[in-house]
Design a protein around this nucleic acid. Structure first.
Length: 600
RNA sequence: CGGGAUGUAGCGCAGCUUGGUAGCGCACUUCGUUCGGGACGAAGGGGCCGCAGGUUCGAAUCCUGUCAUCCCGACCA
């Protein structure tokens, strides 16, 4: 390709609405244009990158025996009603774009494809003999994100590879999950990305095991904790650790202490000369359930610990066997609106009586009670006395008439010891989630009544897995991980072009001819080569070449007269002036070492 | 949805306080000189000042409303 024909428009100034380096560079380099909030056009350069990534993904997915397919983006509501997700995905905070057609039928733009694919599998896969099957597609997904961000990182329309596997039993699902894990590692490695696999929460998609693949980068939206040797890695949502030990409370009798205005752990500890770890704090929360129930929840945490919302939501839905829409702190106003007498906020104790809920207008009238192990393990502690401005000192759990469920509900923190290997300390890093694999189990196949005939002649629901890669996000994550002051440094395997030939002075016949000749030679060899044939000054071309990040550059300049050119590696800036043949040989050597797929 | 900010040419910005009918840099067009790290000179083209009301002889500027975008929190590939 010739730059003069490439519709290349690069920007010198940084667009004001781009915050992070990768977003700025993609805009400045003429890779993407914003069309609307969270909606981007992939310009020709970007599309080449995306196709290269897709090709790697396809090769690796095909190698696992997965079948490529293309499922509709426009999906009828009935499918989603069968899985029970239509309401959750469209109403209120719903993430699915949806509309009504002229016949009054409701349809949604696919944010994901479990429903479509499960329903198809139910129709097509009738016998255990046909299993296992994995289907995958590279498709645009639509999600009505509340806050699109950072260019392609969180768009409302984005490209995703999603795969769904169907199995006769759980063991086979596990086998496939392991295979996908390995395929994913190869994909990210081939794309030149440093990625970490972390234990993750399954979130709204549900299911048993799940693992995320994070590209480590400062701009990442996720916090991950890893052990020093990397043997343990988890998303903060899921991470566990050994909490630092609590400071024991001095000997003494149980007593009630006056704590006027000491409503927070900080205030209490400062006034009473306590350590936060000597206190049990009690959080009153309200869970809105999918069934419509409004369930009050009391959570006991050691005073120095933070609540992990995701863990709490999971604990509630497991205990109630009902989905949780959200969990929010109970406010003074809400208590009043329920027609209840005021609660002693700031002095709540773990044994706050269910009588506090008697006569509530719309709330369930008994608390769901949880305690984090760090709180439950305290022998003696300080806690609220359930009367305003009073706390109890030296309480024991056995003295309190309550029996909370003990569940891990705290955030693990950097600096704490690793549960898997207590000799190691956890470190915090930031990551961009580029892939996520799940063992879904039979959640969707049961809901959608997708079943097959077993060897014994019975009907059973499929065991399913699903496996996603954010293709467009991955491309930007690669920029986030591979750039410098001057611009992008694409990993060779996903670079839009392997090499750019810069003719320094287009007026110089010798240079021009040598440039053209090199271009023809490389093109004939199937090399992805770009020729900068614009009649710009050399400086401009160098700046643009750096910005758009082509891994190799051949400069045809003043040494052209002696048959010499300069070969420059973008990432390292290493340059050598060589006779043309040698430069070509070095270049071939350099670009043959990659396993880059062929994309024309 | 809550908190913060911004809307003026393709991009980056000034002008607004103190109303008088829009300007700078980059980009774009033409000519000349230049030609290995975003050249210089000259001459050009391009703006519903987000939108709608209002105040005023007169509004980019003041007032009201509205829309959009971005940043911080809840969602996720």
């Amino acid at each position: 390709m010739r730059v003069s024909r490439l519709m290349l428009v690069t920007l010198r100034d940084v667009p004001a609405d781009a915050e992070i380096a990768s977003h700025q560079l993609l805009l400045r380099g003429g890779y993407i244009r914003r069309v609307g909030s969270g909606i981007y056009a992939y310009l020709p350069l970007m599309w080449k990158v995306l196709r290269k990534i897709s090709a790697i993904v396809q090769e690796e997915m095909d190698a696992t025996g997965a079948l490529e397919t293309l499922l509709p983006q426009l999906q009828p509501s009935e499918l989603w009603e069968r899985s029970g997700r239509w309401q959750g995905y469209t109403a209120g905070e719903g993430i699915m774009f949806h509309l009504e057609d002229r016949q009054g039928r409701e349809v949604g733009l696919g944010p994901t494809h479990e429903e479509v694919v499960t329903s198809l599998a139910g129709e097509l896969l009738r016998s255990y003999r046909q299993l296992p099957v994995t289907l995958y597609q590279i498709q645009n997904k639509f999600r009505d994100e509340i806050r699109p961000r950072f260019g392609l990182m969180r768009g409302r329309e984005f490209i995703m590879k999603d795969a769904y596997s169907f199995h006769a039993d759980e063991d086979d699902l596990r086998r496939c999950y392991g295979e996908m894990d390995r395929a994913y590692r190869r994909i990210f490695e081939r794309c030149g990305l440093q990625a970490v696999a972390v234990e993750a929460d399954s979130g709204a998609i549900g299911g048993a095991a799940s693992q995320e693949f994070m590209v480590t980068a400062e701009a990442g939206e996720d916090l991950i904790l890893t052990s020093e040797d990397g043997s343990y890695a988890a998303n903060l949502e899921k991470a566990v650790s050994i909490a630092n030990p609590a400071t024991p409370l001095p000997e003494g009798e149980v007593k009630v202490i006056d704590t006027p205005g000491q409503d927070s752990i900080d205030a209490l500890c400062n006034s009473q000369d306590l350590e936060p770890s000597q206190v049990v704090k009690v959080l009153a929360l309200l869970a809105r359930m999918e069934s419509g129930a409004q369930q009050p929840v009391l959570v006991c945490l050691r005073g120095d610990q933070e609540l992990n919302d995701v863990k709490l939501v999971n604990a509630i839905s497991a205990l109630q066997n009902d989905g949780v829409l959200d969990v929010t702190p109970v406010s003074v106003e809400q208590v009043a609106n329920q027609g209840l007498s005021p609660w002693p906020f700031g002095a709540l104790g773990p044994d706050l009586d269910d009588a506090s809920l008697e006569g509530a207008k719309s709330w369930t009238t008994s608390f769901l009670r949880f305690a984090d192990p760090t709180a439950k393990e305290l022998d003696r502690f300080v806690c609220g006395a359930n009367s305003p401005n009073q706390h109890r000192w030296g309480s024991r759990w056995s003295d309190l008439s309550c029996d909370p469920q003990v569940v891990d509900l705290r955030n693990a923190q950097a600096g704490e010891r690793c549960q898997k290997d207590p000799t190691q300390t956890l470190m915090a890093r930031r990551g961009i989630e580029v892939g996520h694999i799940f063992q879904l189990g039979r959640k969707y196949s049961q809901a959608m009544e997708a079943s097959f005939t077993t060897a014994e002649g019975g009907q059973e629901a499929f065991w399913m897995g699903c496996y996603g890669i954010g293709v467009s996000r991955l491309a930007q994550a690669a920029v986030e991980q591979h750039h410098d002051q001057a611009g992008i440094c694409w990993p060779l395997a996903i670079a839009p072009f392997a090499v750019v030939i810069v003719v320094a002075n287009m007026q110089d016949e010798t240079q021009l001819q040598l440039g053209e000749q090199l271009y023809d030679t490389l093109r004939a060899e199937g090399v992805d080569v770009l020729l900068d044939d614009r009649s710009e000054r050399a400086g401009v071309k160098f700046k643009d070449a750096d910005l758009i990040g082509i891994p190799w550059r051949l400069v045809v300049g003043r040494d052209a007269a002696n048959g010499q050119v300069e070969l420059v590696e973008r990432a390292t800036r290493e340059a050598q002036v060589l006779p043309t043949d040698e430069a070509l040989a070095s270049l071939r050597e350099a670009i043959s070492t990659t396993t880059s797929p062929t994309v024309v």
